[in-house]
């Protein structure tokens, strides 16, 4: 696979405050990488560094083998960037704005109308071309911001909180669009919403206090058939191990157990088996994936979750 982005030991300080420290990453074509983390974790700083808006304190960023510091113009040609706030000009109409963006990205003049039509169609802006940007709703502004980022079909797409301001239907459409775009691009997106990242990304990187705390493929981080149960009375782990749907059980606290079910068993089978065995079932919850556990551990919400 072709490597679109290679980041080596990237750090950025703001005065004495270290916003980002020692980040290494590599993005292949067709991959969607989700940057996840609580507010202030360094996600936006990381994306602003990758898009050339900020200079790194140390480290190296290469886009398609081009060093962003030494050859910024050549590197930025392969980049589409949607910042946290879409960079719009409210006094322009949608078509005027997209034409301006096409010129900025140095698209050949004859290809501009087709590129604008395609970007509008992909972002659901077909009938908005004559509208003033100042009159657009927040959701449409976000779509327009995305349209300018994909207008020149960049191989590398950087999206900072792309679903911000979108309603649930628009969010679902955007996820579909991101998967569609990922067929011939590499995409990095940031979010503080775990389900959003899980649903659309192939790989997740969790940032906390400027450092990478977790980096894994989402497939490996998906929940398994693990459940957490809390039973009443004096229950031994052997009681659970004897139940038919249970492949294995582990005591993790007073009357609390982590239960691994047989591949074809469901939580309903487990609940039924517990009740038929005469045990008291107080709680039955799915065990979190590694990704969820790491995320909630980091933001300190494990106890409240």
């Amino acid at each position: 696979m072709e490597t679109l982005l290679r980041v080596t030991d990237l750090s950025r300080d703001f005065g004495r405050h270290s916003a980002l420290s020692g980040v290494d990453l590599c993005l292949e074509r067709g991959q969607v990488l989700g940057l996840l983390g609580p507010n202030g974790a360094g996600k936006t700083t990381c994306l602003r560094l990758l898009s050339g808006l900020l200079a790194p304190t140390s480290g190296r960023i290469e886009i398609l083998g081009l060093d962003l510091t030494h050859r910024p113009l050549a590197a930025k040609r392969h980049l589409g960037y949607l910042p946290e706030r879409p960079p719009l000009h409210p006094e322009l109409r949608v078509d005027e704005y997209l034409t301006h963006c096409a010129h900025l990205h140095r698209l050949p003049r004859r290809t501009i109308p087709e590129a604008i039509a395609t970007a509008k169609q992909r972002c659901g802006l077909e009938d908005q071309g004559r509208r003033l940007i100042a009159k657009l709703s927040r959701g449409y502004r976000q779509r327009l911001g995305l349209a300018q980022a994909i207008l020149h079909r960049p191989p590398l797409l950087i999206l900072d909180e792309p679903t911000e301001g979108l309603d649930p239907v628009q969010m679902r459409e955007l996820r579909r669009l991101i998967r569609d775009l990922a067929r011939d691009s590499g995409i990095i997106l940031s979010s503080h919403l775990l389900p959003e990242v899980q649903s659309v990304c192939d790989r997740v990187m969790i940032l906390h206090q400027g450092r990478v705390r977790f980096d894994a493929e989402t497939r490996t981080a998906r929940p398994t058939n693990l459940w957490r149960v809390r039973l009443g009375g004096e229950t031994h782990v052997m009681h659970l191990n004897d139940l038919a749907p249970v492949a294995g059980a582990l005591a993790i606290g007073l009357n609390q157990f982590q239960v691994d079910l047989q591949p074809d068993a469901t939580s309903a089978d487990l609940a039924r088996a517990i009740l038929l065995a005469g045990l008291e079932l107080f709680e039955l919850t799915p065990e979190r994936s590694d990704l969820e556990r790491t995320f909630f551990d980091l933001i300190g919400a494990e106890e409240h979750a």
Partner: peptide, 9 residues
């Protein structure tokens, strides 16, 4: 709005 220019080539 300046981000558009800063991220452009």
């Amino acid at each position: 709005g300046y981000d558009l220019l800063a991220a452009a080539p």
